[in-house]
Design a protein around this nucleic acid. Structure first.
Length: 492
RNA sequence: GCGGAAUUAGUUUAGUCUGGUAUGACGUCAGCUUCCCAAGCUGAAGGCCGCGGGUUCAAAUCCCGCAUUCCGCACCA
């Protein structure tokens, strides 16, 4: 079977998502529902929970990180310090004639070649536009005054509507909580702090369901380190032979983490180690990592806080998709919060007082889940079926529990076994319809195993265990069922 | 946000030009049959035809506005 020929595209994933309850538009019964908001259905939640369990195993626990759960609404000061109030906004201009909207700085550069910095005062854009007589590129109309479009959602707190914001990234609570966490958790550098949660960005044009949302999940890891010790990383040996694909200027090149370090593609052992464990995590999600790359970003592409940045990207039917941003943020965040809050963010590393630097692994959960679905979905033409070949430990449902037919006591026997296993795994009971149809339905949901009770079961206390991907079957004793299942669905 | 296309049941679709409240298939559910891979038969449920307004005796159909989705442009996890 040639995998490349039977992979599915965005539209097939979308149909699966809607029909099988992975995800669907929010508030869809109302006409005023806004774009960029999606719900996870039962199957989607199952997949997401298991994905996050894998993330905790492979990154948080493996590296001994601390996990927190911060608040989604944060004070204005946080974002003054973080730079989001100043930098996370685009200066925009709108044509009075055709009401097209443009980025002010880009339009001025395009027409005159004059660079007005993105962060300049709004009047500077207006002056440049008036002095150079810049008109709408589409209809030659005049522009309204420049205004800022900030991507953060502002919220009003309490009866006076005190200004605060929905966080545009989860990591700010990790930064501001760092002094307390380091003290009370007996922290030692390097220290990773992790968080899963929602972030909010008022995107101008949300697109493509889970791929560009206004409200989305992130799993972020911020590793606090001593910048003088970035090559003192004993754990590096764990991943030195792990293969990653790195892209700087040319095509992506496969190399071990050790080779990436020695060739200078990755700046130090510390960063190489985290790229390595991230790669090992993604291998276990079932995403085809042969179609992935760590793309080293140029100066113009990097976020305003990043010194060195690698985007982890994966090839999908709609092109390369960024799943994770790996940014070396240096002391940008802790310095800013020190200055603004007057709190002390320095800590002791042995006998040395240091303001830690930060390396972050900022994962887009929704995009990762989409990619898992797309890379797992197959059109098995030989057997006329759609198969979602999820890893067993990520499948929303582990086991389909079926009676071959309803009568002759098979239903009762099936119910009995179901009662026995349903607290050990995610099992789904189904008695109705032809057996083949029920198998097909489970295949499409990504259920890796089906257990079928037949007439022979009543005589020999054995059931059929059917494998999703191969469609093979074998007989298993009911008494051994539990251990067989637990083994088959366990995390690697 | 701009430009283009689209929106009818869970999915896909006929009907739209030429106004008279909707067709088929798949799926779902129940029963019979079969008894390990989407078979067959019988029956049923499921639609304010994206939302709002207008024209008309009458609107899925004509007109206007809005929203969403998809494709391009710009921006991002």
């Amino acid at each position: 079977m040639n995998i490349d020929e039977i992979l599915m595209d965005y539209e097939a994933v979308m149909r699966l998502a809607l029909e099988r309850g992975f995800y669907f538009p929010s508030c869809e019964v109302y006409g005023d529902a806004q774009a960029g908001f999606w719900e996870y259905g039962p199957s989607g939640v199952g997949l997401k929970n298991k994905f996050l369990e894998l993330w905790r195993r492979e990154l948080v626990r493996r590296d001994g990180m601390l996990e927190i759960d911060g608040s989604q609404i944060m004070s204005k000061s946080v974002f003054e310090a973080s730079g989001h109030l100043g930098n996370f906004a685009d200066p925009i201009i709108r044509c009075t004639e055709c009401s097209s909207t443009f980025r002010a700085d880009k339009t001025i550069v395009d027409v005159t070649g004059i660079e007005v910095p993105e962060s300049a005062a709004l009047e500077e854009f207006d002056d440049a536009i008036v002095q150079n007589n810049i008109k709408c590129p589409k209809c030659k109309g005049d522009f309204e005054k420049t205004r800022n479009f900030n991507m953060m959602f502002k919220v009003g707190i309490g009866p006076e509507g005190e200004e605060a914001y929905l966080r545009p990234e989860t990591c700010q609570s990790i930064f501001v909580d760092f002094p307390r966490l380091f003290k009370i958790m007996r922290g030692k550098l390097p220290l990773g702090i992790a968080q899963v949660g929602k972030s909010f960005r008022n995107e101008i044009a949300p697109r493509q369901s889970l791929l560009r949302l206004r409200e989305f999940y992130q799993a972020e890891i911020e590793v606090f380190c001593n910048p003088a010790k970035l090559d003192e990383m004993d754990r590096f040996s764990e991943i030195e032979n792990t293969v990653i694909r790195v892209q700087a200027d040319g095509d992506p090149v496969s190399m071990t983490c050790k080779e990436a370090l020695e060739s200078g593609m990755v700046p130090n052992k510390f960063v190489a180690y985290y790229l390595g464990i991230l790669m090992e995590f993604y291998e276990k999600t079932g995403i085809d990592v042969k179609r992935s790359r760590f793309r080293k970003l140029g100066d113009k592409e990097k976020a305003f806080y990043a010194k060195v940045a690698f985007d982890f990207e994966v090839e999908t039917s709609i092109g390369w998709l960024e799943l994770v941003a790996c940014n070396y943020r240096s002391d940008y965040d802790l310095s800013s919060h020190t200055k603004k809050s007057k709190e002390k963010f320095e800590v002791m590393d042995n006998d040395e007082k240091v303001l830690p630097h930060i390396f972050e692994i900022s994962m887009g959960i929704d995009r990762s889940l989409y990619t898992i679905l797309e890379h797992s979905l197959r059109d098995d033409k030989e057997h006329e079926r759609i198969v979602l070949s999820l890893k067993p430990y990520l499948s929303p449902i582990h086991i389909g529990m079926l009676s071959l037919v309803k009568k002759d006591g098979l239903k009762e026997k099936t119910d009995e076994i179901y009662l026995q296993i349903k607290r050990k795994c995610d099992a789904f009971l189904d008695h109705s319809g032809a057996i083949g149809r029920r198998y097909r339905r489970l295949d499409e949901l990504g259920v890796p195993f089906a257990i079928t009770v037949d007439h022979q079961t009543l005589e020999d206390d054995m059931v059929t265990l059917r494998m999703r991907d191969s469609m093979e079957q074998k007989r298993v004793k009911i008494s051994e069922l539990e251990s067989v299942i637990v083994e088959a669905i366990s995390f690697p």
